[in-house]
Simulated scan of single mutants.
Amino acid sequence: MKTIKFFHPEETFNYKIEKSLCKVVYQGDKQVLLIEIHSTDELEHVEDDSIQNEFPQLSLFIDDFPLDVESAEELNGKTIEIPYGFAEEEDEDGELHEVYYTSLNVSEEDYEVVGNKLTFSINEKGVLSLNWKGQVQDFTEETSDDIPFEINCTFEEFEFKEEDYD
Rank of each mutant, 00 (worst) to 15 (best):
D146R: 00
L128E: 05
D138S: 01
F149D: 00
S71W: 04
D145C: 01
E98L: 08
V114K: 00
N123P: 05
N123Q: 08
L21H: 11
E163S: 14
V106R: 03
F160H: 14
T3D: 13
S20Y: 05
Q135C: 01
L67A: 04
F149I: 01
E10K: 07
T40K: 10
T12N: 10
V127P: 04
E89W: 08
V106F: 02
L60W: 08
E90K: 10
E109S: 10
E73G: 15
E98S: 11
F6K: 00
G77S: 05
E162L: 14
E74N: 05
I80H: 07
Y15W: 03
T143C: 00
H97Q: 07
N76F: 04
N105I: 12
P83C: 04
L58N: 12
F149S: 01
N76T: 10
Y84I: 06
I122K: 09
G115A: 03
N131T: 13
L21Q: 13
E73A: 11
T119G: 05
A87S: 11
V25T: 15
E47N: 13
F13A: 02
G134D: 02
E90L: 04
Y111V: 02
N131H: 11
S50R: 00
Q52P: 07
H45C: 06
V69S: 06
D91Q: 02
E124M: 09
T3M: 11
K16Q: 13
Y100F: 11
T140E: 01
E150T: 07
G115I: 00
D29A: 12
Y100K: 13
L58F: 04
E150F: 03
F65V: 05
E156N: 15
K117E: 09
S20R: 02
F120P: 03
D29H: 14
A87E: 11
L34V: 15
Y84M: 08
P148N: 03
N76E: 12
A72P: 06
